[in-house]
Nucleic acid binder design. Structure first.
Lengths: 136, 136
DNA sequence: ACGTACTGTACATATTAAGTGTACAGTCAT
DNA sequence: ATGACTGTACACTTAATATGTACAGTACGT
């Protein structure tokens, strides 16, 4: 029988000094891997204790992140088994209100970057790079 | 004597149901106005009570936002006077580490948008729009 | 069948962050 | 001086986050 394994334990990094809570950083980091296809349906995630050890947080913190991801439809959780990535079809199209909110938050984000001294040229570079990845 | 006045009270909007705290939403919204030059050095901000009333929060919450902005060098605060926007030269160039962090957070942000059902085309549109504003 | 070692989970507690209420102190115009 | 406006300080409540500990399901070897 083939063993279920993860395509190399995904390495994520969080900043314990950040003002954004650890469990949300974990959710964000894993969601990036899902969206970008670096972890795929059928793969399983490392255990909450393993991740907790790697990141330096309590395993319940990771558990909360996993539950959040389950609620978003990214993974299936079942007690005793490891968390497995699930095939989450296309999400329903977002309402316009949410698009507006996205625009506002994006602006705030870029403004913060500019304010912190990141050169506009650098920012443009990053934005363009993302555009490239999204187009094809 | 000329009255000190704000170039039309800047209207900002926050989401009281959001998971990001109100005072930080206020900081973010005002910083956008500063960075984009919609509020300029010499202008004064509406009082903490005025803003609080508009947004539906307590004035101490606004006060905390103002103090944060003062610390970032955007405004001068003095008891008894209204908050006045200050000329904050160019920020010192950000270290590479911070640029990396910007990239990561930007990715997380876009991933969240995609996951929530915002069409990639829409996202690209917004990104390009920002690039346009940053280039000239 | 049983034990062992691994999964995620539930819940009480501790800690920290965020928001509020109220009183205060400075500025300015009248 | 007085009144009406500024921001501020601090005690307090509430909510969010993180942890500690005990539990329950699953897989696998014996």
């Amino acid at each position: 029988m083939y063993s279920t394994f993860m395509s190399a334990t995904p390495k994520i990094r969080i900043d314990l000094n950040s003002s954004v809570p650890a469990y949300r950083q974990i959710v964000d980091a894993l969601r990036v891997l899902f969206v970008e296809g670096r972890i795929r349906p059928g793969d399983s995630l490392p255990s909450v204790r393993r991740v907790a050890l790697d990141l330096g947080v309590h395993f319940n913190t990771v558990g909360e992140a996993y539950r959040q991801l389950a609620q978003e439809g990214w993974i299936d959780l079942q007690q005793g088994k490891s968390a497995v990535v699930r095939d989450r079809g296309l999400p329903p199209p977002a309402p316009v209100e949410q698009v507006k909110q996205f625009r506002a938050r994006l602006r705030a984000f870029v403004a913060e970057a500019r304010a912190s001294g990141i050169a506009p040229a650098k920012i443009v570079e990053e934005l363009k790079s993302l555009v490239q990845e999204l187009l094809p």
